[in-house]
């Protein structure tokens, strides 16, 4: 995929997530499409594409809707870095792979975010956040699974989890 399409994808994702997709909030939480797309790019496209998408999306969120610069930029970059390591040891064609990656990616995001907020003394008690985080993990896993399965079929030419292919 050409870099300009990745940049366009990051822009479209940011615009839609900050506007139209706000309609899909459940329990005050909405799915994080940046995590979902960054993981899919890291697993099924190239590392460069995944990093470009993660850094542009992170920078946009930090500039327009963040409390400080660099937080999302760093966390999304870190998620891609870790997913690239994980996909080396995981079988990408197993239907459990996207479920695991989406869940672990979302957990890493919130864990690192919590740590950063803790160090700047701006953290929120976990008791107030667990329902939102749990809802986000569930939504990311569900949405991520379907998008991953669709992209996997387009890239590899057979269905995700089809071991007879």
């Amino acid at each position: 995929m050409k870099y300009r399409y990745i940049i366009l994808l990051a822009l479209v994702n940011f615009i839609l997530s900050s506007t139209l997709f706000q309609l899909f909030r459940i329990n005050g939480a909405m799915p994080n499409f940046t995590i979902v797309i960054a993981i899919i790019l890291a697993a099924l496209s190239t590392s460069q594409n995944a990093y470009i998408f993660a850094f542009i999306s992170g920078a946009m969120q930090d500039i327009f809707l963040g409390r400080m610069l660099g937080v999302n930029f760093m966390i999304y970059g870190l998620i891609v870095y870790l997913v690239l390591y994980l996909v080396e040891v995981l079988f990408k064609g197993n239907f459990m792979t996207p479920l695991f990656l989406m869940a672990i990616g979302t957990i890493i995001y919130h864990f690192v975010f919590y740590l950063i907020m803790f160090f700047i003394q701006s953290t929120i008690p976990f008791s107030l956040m667990y329902l939102k985080i749990a809802t986000e993990i569930a939504m990311n896993v569900l949405i991520g699974y379907f998008i991953y399965a669709w992209v996997f079929k387009r890239v590899h030419g057979y269905k995700l989890g089809d071991f007879n292919a």
Binding site: F14, I15, S18, G28, M30, L65, G66, R67, M117, I133
Partner: peptide
Amino acid sequence: VISKDVGNWFNMFT
């Protein structure tokens, strides 16, 4: 209001 926070931690908007 033209956009709202993408994350789930804060309630910022532009």
